[in-house]
Amino acid sequence: MSDSRASRHDNRTEAIMRAALDLALELGYAKLSIEAVATRAGVGKHTVYRRWSSRGLLFLDAVLSLNTEGLSHPNTGDVVADLRETMTRAVKLLARPPWGPLYQALIGEAQHDPEVAAALNRRFIEPQTADTLARLKAAKEQGELAPDFDLDLAFDVLSGPLYYRLLITQQPITHDYIDRVLQAVFAGMSPRPKTSY
């Protein structure tokens, strides 16, 4: 593919994804269609189908094309502060358009489309999980966490309340709430004092 053809291909791909995001925000994901996206992007629907086999996979690529930088964990030596910082950044990202409503719609689509669910897990959930687990593992190795603590369970307990509020109750996720989650989790994760008999 020549440079000009590759550039045209990239420009069309970007225009299609931007059109999908704009329409999803305007109409809601339920009303999003390949035909409407093609019309908004100024391309034929076959151009869209050559790149994506379904509207769900198009939407996944479009949402994941948005900037999610800043969600990796720092390692300052204070695991609670590091997790609080990353959780706060994630909550800010999800609390406002375009990310929040689009991500909620993407999670909803993943419940009905196994291909979208698998791609979302592989491309977004698993890398985020791996980053959090790496930070928890480092904290464990540095003695901040009990040596026998289950890191996978810790991740589930840390992320579960956030997803519950985001997707189920739609209650706000405040700084105070994040602090309460961290306090509840880390009370059980801290090294226990040795007892002498």
Results as ranks from 00 to 15, higher is better:
residue 86 T to L: 02
residue 24 A to L: 02
residue 140 K to D: 01
residue 91 V to C: 12
residue 190 S to E: 15
residue 8 R to G: 11
residue 47 T to N: 12
residue 27 L to R: 13
residue 110 A to M: 01
residue 25 L to M: 11
residue 169 T to C: 06
residue 90 A to C: 09
residue 186 F to G: 02
residue 52 W to L: 04
residue 100 G to R: 02
residue 131 D to A: 15
residue 40 R to K: 15
residue 131 D to P: 03
residue 117 A to G: 10
residue 113 D to C: 07
residue 123 R to S: 10
residue 56 G to Q: 00
residue 122 R to P: 06
residue 149 F to L: 14
residue 17 M to H: 08
residue 88 T to H: 08
residue 105 A to V: 02
residue 37 V to H: 01
residue 177 Y to W: 10
residue 143 G to E: 02
residue 149 F to V: 15
residue 187 A to L: 13
residue 40 R to Q: 11
residue 96 R to D: 10
residue 131 D to R: 06
residue 193 P to G: 10
residue 133 L to R: 01
residue 177 Y to F: 15
residue 197 Y to V: 03
residue 195 T to H: 03
residue 46 H to K: 13
residue 183 Q to I: 08
residue 33 S to R: 07
residue 30 A to P: 05
residue 128 Q to V: 06
residue 180 R to M: 11
residue 180 R to I: 08
residue 177 Y to M: 13
residue 156 D to G: 15
residue 80 V to M: 05
residue 178 I to E: 08
residue 51 R to P: 05
residue 65 S to L: 03
residue 32 L to C: 02
residue 56 G to S: 11
residue 1 M to T: 11
residue 5 R to M: 10
residue 21 L to E: 05
residue 128 Q to D: 08
residue 86 T to W: 00
residue 123 R to M: 04
residue 188 G to I: 01
residue 186 F to R: 07
residue 50 R to I: 06
residue 117 A to R: 09
residue 164 Y to D: 14
